[in-house]
Computed example of a mutant assay.
Amino acid sequence: MQACPYNPLQMPELPEVETTRRGLVPRMVGRTIQDVVVRDARLRWPVPRDLARRLRGAEVVAIRRRGKYLLFDFPKGHLLVHLGMSGRLTMVPEDRPAKLHDHVDVRLDSHESLRLNDPRRFGAMLWIGGEAEKHALLRGLGVEPFDPAFTGAHLHALARGRRVAVKHFIMNASVVTGVGNIYASEALFRAGIHPTRPVGRISLERWNVLAQAIRDTLSRALDAGGSTLRDYVSATGEPGQFQNVTSVYDREGQPCRRCSRPIKALRQGQRSTFYCAGCQR
């Protein structure tokens, strides 16, 4: 069988973004912004020119996550951050010299800085003056995987009459937000569902199994600190470990951990999908 080529560049997904959030909360919430240094504003959307003026002297009230977005709540607005394809947020001493692709520093009264590094500049750092959930980037997002509203019945209702492949469906952020490529392949393996199966042909019972498999997969990834394929590290500089324990992802040709048949790979859109032909139907 011809190998399925893929690019191991990883877009940070729910586990990586949530791990980052958890690392930032104890070091940022309750702190006051002293200044903002923008070295390169040319991200996917330009960093607002008045960001330093808006943040200077403001206290960080909370840090939340919505899908793959981080929301830093302030008394008079919100800082929205998206890590794009290669971005990462780390806490560094305020006097640490900037390296290549260190585009923005948010300096705190603790003498630390929140530093955004983004080699491909597909990320974003934007100011929201009104209600965050009504922002154009957030209002169309689907249910969160750990929300009680995320159920097999919810997925079954959205899938009724549709022919799209199930892997594409669960990676659609308007259906469920935060399920990235690694975690979609792993959840489908856990649920025993072939990634190309049309969603309209999946029973409610199997949707219930898949909904739980998505939650279980993401929970395991969170426990492992996310996945590091290339660039991602947590806010404290630690790489994720989930890539070391995957069942199918990036294991083409290796024996299935359940049935010992070789793991297969195929292309769906622009992404590689890994699966076991013996365990997934």
Rank of each mutant, 00 (worst) to 15 (best):
Q270G: 00
D95L: 13
F169K: 08
V104A: 08
P46T: 03
V106A: 06
T19I: 10
V47D: 00
G161N: 02
A52N: 07
R190Q: 14
H78V: 15
T177N: 05
Q280H: 13
P239L: 06
K68R: 04
R258G: 04
L24N: 07
R162H: 08
D95A: 13
R220C: 08
V104H: 07
G180R: 06
K68H: 03
L116Q: 03
S174D: 08
C276T: 09
A187D: 13
V164A: 02
C279T: 09
Q34V: 03
S203R: 04
H154F: 15
L137T: 03
T151P: 03
G84P: 05
V36Y: 08
L83Y: 03
H135Y: 00
G140L: 05
R56N: 06
R66I: 11
A213I: 02
Y275D: 05
M125R: 07
H82R: 07
C259M: 02
D35F: 14
G123R: 13
E252I: 10
D95C: 07
R88T: 10
L188C: 00
E112A: 00
F189C: 01
L204R: 13
S86R: 01
E16H: 09
N7A: 08
F122T: 07
I263W: 06
L14F: 04
L108F: 15
A62V: 01
F146A: 00
I193N: 11
H78R: 14
A132C: 12
S247W: 12
E94A: 14
R190H: 14
R54N: 04
P46E: 00
G77A: 02
C279W: 13
Q268T: 08
T196S: 14
S110N: 11
R261Q: 11
K167I: 14
L100I: 07
V17T: 12
G87Q: 01
K99L: 14
S174A: 13
Y69W: 15
R230G: 03
R162F: 00
D40E: 14
L114N: 11
L266H: 10
V81M: 12
W207Y: 15
I263K: 01
A41W: 13
Y6Q: 04
V248Y: 09
R107N: 14
R139W: 06
M91L: 15
V29A: 08
N172Q: 14
E144Y: 00
P255S: 10
L108H: 04
C279N: 09
R120E: 13
G23T: 02
M171E: 06
